[in-house]
Structures are given as structure tokens and as C-alpha cells.
């Protein structure tokens, strides 16, 4: 039937609004609401139960004077920088190797990416076994005749980060490779033809022409890898449980242990708020950069 006037604004499109309720609730209640809740309660002295008893910044003061948090931050920084650089380097290198019109490309890609399908728990347990000092790598090398060989990262506070890196890159570099390979494939064939006509060596083309063209792909990879690094938790639990001692503690584990183990909620909230701040420090410039670029185009 023909209507004479426009339908009411609120009811326009009401089915879509109804269908989007889960999304709206998730966005508002969980992502904004819960985050704000935690930030607010990080200024209280909640212990076993959350209480609105504000104590200013004292949770943060305690947090930053706790050696375990300091070690966690230090670990995360070292692990983060190494993992980021290594993952990007390995990912790009593998993508370039896979891009050489090789045989069995699908096979190699399947091998490189399969760990990504596994959980961090599985990854951690496997590498724990490979790095086991009595049976794993150290044992093998020693039994080959190098009896003085020592490589026991799981029990060496200085090397334990290496174990995390080996396992973390094993699990995650495949994703970077696949994204970079997609990026390489997305580059116009004519660029390669032009470089060949100009007589530029392949490796030079990759470094001076292709690499700068891959900036957006690198940006995406950096964001993804960084988000993964900050959330680093399962792998530590499965591989080292934070040990030896507190040598491989990370912030996410600190949060979990204080919230659910030590019944010191305020510390957990303060620590998680610090994690949120770190993420915002990465995400906001990136978002502004992308927004700015969209405006210019």
C-alpha cells in the first residue's frame, strides 16, 4: 500500500538494527564498557573482590616497583623487538623464495604455514621437548662427540628468551610469509618487466623497488605481529611457565596470575591497563596514518 508520509526515523530499517544488536552490545558493553571498567578499578585497592575504594596511582607505583613486572616488561621488549624483526625478515625472505616460480610452491607453503594452525600450547610443549637438556638438542650434539656442548635455554635465565623466539617464530612466521607473498603477487607484473628491460639485478629490484612498494603490507604485518606479541601468554605458560625463576615472565601472565592466582585484583587491573596503553600507543598512530592517507587520496 502506498503510504503518504515518510516512516518514523527510529523504525526505519528496524530489522537491520535488531540484527546488529549483538554487534552493538559487543562494541559498547564488552569492548568499551569492560575496558573502561578495568581502567577505573585499576585506581582502587581491590584485592579478592573488586571494590570502589580509590587509592590513586598507588597500584601503578607498586606495579612499577615490583621486580617481576620489570622483568616482564623487559622480556616483552626484548622478545617483541627480536620477534618483530626476525618474523618480518624471515617472512619476507621466504615470500621472495616462494615467489621464484618454484616447483612444489604449494607444498613448501603448506609446510611453512602448518604450525600456524596449532595452538601455542601445542607449540610450547613441542619445543619444550626439543629443547629438553637431557634428551633434546643438547643431548644430540653431545652424543655426536661434542661432549662440552651446552645449550639449555629452558634452564638458563639469559637464554630462555631464545627458546620463546624459536617457538614463537616457528608458529607465527608462516602467516607473515603468506601475507607478504600475497603482497608480492599483488605487484604489477609490468614493474618486473620494466626492471628487466632496464637491466636491474633481481635482488636489487627486490630491495630498491619492490620493498618500498610493500610498505602497506609491512604495516599490516607489523600491526598483526605486535598485537600477537602483546598478547603473548599461552606460549610462555606451556613452554617455560615463566621460569627459570621469573626469567621469562611476561605482562599478560602477570595480569592473569595477580587476578586469578594471587587474588590481588588491583595489581592485575593496573597491569592490564598498562597493556592497553601500550596497544593504544601502537594502534592510534597507525589508525591516524591510514585515516590521513585515505583523506589525501
Amino acid at each position: 500500500m502506498a503510504r503518504s508520509g515518510p516512516p518514523l526515523r527510529l523504525f526505519q530499517n528496524w530489522q537491520a538494527k535488531l540484527a546488529a544488536t549483538p554487534m552493538i552490545l559487543t562494541a559498547l558493553v564488552v569492548f568499551i564498557g569492560c575496558s573502561l571498567w578495568t581502567v577505573v578499578y585499576s585506581f582502587t585497592n581491590s584485592r579478592l573482590l573488586p571494590r570502589l575504594d580509590f587509592v590513586g596511582l598507588s597500584q601503578y607505583e607498586r606495579l612499577w616497583s615490583t621486580p617481576r613486572w620489570q622483568v616482564s616488561i623487559e622480556n616483552l621488549a626484548i622478545y617483541g623487538i627480536c620477534a618483530l624483526v626476525l618474523t618480518l625478515a624471515i617472512g619476507f625472505l621466504l615470500a621472495v623464495l616462494l615467489d621464484q616460480k618454484i616447483r612444489f610452491e604449494d607444498g613448501f607453503r603448506t609446510i611453512i604455514l602448518f604450525p600456524y594452525a596449532l595452538s601455542f600450547i601445542v607449540t610450547g610443549v613441542v619445543w619444550q621437548w626439543i629443547l629438553n637438556p637431557d634428551f633434546g638438542l643438547q643431548h644430540i650434539v653431545r652424543s655426536m662427540g661434542f661432549s662440552g656442548f651446552t645449550f639449555d635455554p629452558l634452564n638458563d635465565p639469559n637464554l630462555v628468551i631464545l627458546a620463546l623466539l624459536a617457538a614463537g617464530i616457528w608458529q607465527g612466521a608462516g602467516l607473515t610469509t603468506v601475507i607478504m607473498l600475497a603482497g608480492l603477487r599483488g605487484i604489477d607484473e609490468d614493474v618486473w618487466k620494466a626492471a628487466r628491460v632496464d637491466g636491474i639485478a633481481t635482488w636489487k629490484t627486490y630491495i630498491f623497488i619492490i620493498l618500498p612498494m610493500m610498505k602497506p603490507v609491512f604495516a599490516t604485518c607489523i600491526v598483526l605481529i605486535s598485537a600477537g606479541i602483546i598478547k603473548l601468554y599461552d606460549l610462555v605458560v606451556a613452554l617455560t611457565r615463566g621460569g627459570p625463576g621469573i626469567a621469562s615472565e611476561v605482562p599478560a601472565k602477570y595480569v592473569y596470575d595477580y587476578m586469578f592466582g594471587n587474588q590481588n585484583l588491583g595489581q592485575g587491573f593496573a597491569a592490564s591497563t598498562m597493556m592497553l596503553a601500550a596497544v593504544l600507543a601502537i594502534i592510534i598512530p597507525f589508525a591516524l596514518f591510514r585515516l590521513g592517507r585515505k583523506r589525501h587520496v
Partner: peptide
């Protein structure tokens, strides 16, 4: 002859 300004496409 019908005012269809606010009618659904199918109507």
C-alpha cells in the same frame, strides 16, 4: 496515479 514516494520497491 499512486503516490509511491515512501513505498517499498516491490509495491
Amino acid at each position: 496515479g499512486q503516490n509511491v514516494t515512501w513505498a517499498e520497491p516491490s509495491e
